[in-house]
């Protein structure tokens, strides 16, 4: 079982505001899901088996660092989706400052 403080800590880590009324519901739901997935502890594992990824054929794909597109080709279309821009940049609030006051 996880505690209400754990839910609040997780919501901070995940950068998601959670209302006080929602904390209890999330605590119950997440505890139930964690209780369910605990059944994996029944599975005995052999040493080193975690390094086998038999489900995946994925491998590192390399490509030559060439044929760059013309600079700025996509700037306008990408920035058009941004909530706030200035002079061809994304605009955000300053990161340091208000917290010290």
């Amino acid at each position: 079982m996880i505690k209400a403080e754990d839910v609040k800590k997780l919501s901070q880590l995940a950068r998601i505001s959670v209302s006080d009324s929602e904390v209890e519901e999330l605590r119950t739901d997440i505890s139930a899901i964690l209780g369910y997935v605990d059944k994996l502890n029944e599975v005995r594992e052999e040493a080193g088996s975690e390094h086998v990824r038999a489900y995946s054929d994925a491998r590192t794909v390399m490509r030559d660092d060439t044929d760059a597109h013309e600079p700025g080709l996509y700037t306008d279309s990408l920035l058009a989706e941004a909530p706030a821009t200035e002079n061809g940049f994304y605009k955000v609030k300053k990161i340091l400052g208000n917290t010290d006051e």
Partner: peptide, 30 residues
């Protein structure tokens, strides 16, 4: 909008994501 960048993130994601998405992100974070 929040008071600073961190609050922008927290409020945007809090209001933008629905219940199940929030639940899975928190579970994944855990």
């Amino acid at each position: 909008e929040g008071n600073d960048l961190l609050e922008d993130y927290i409020k945007t994601r809090g209001e933008g994501f629905g219940t199940e998405v929030r639940r899975r992100i928190l579970l994944g974070t855990y």
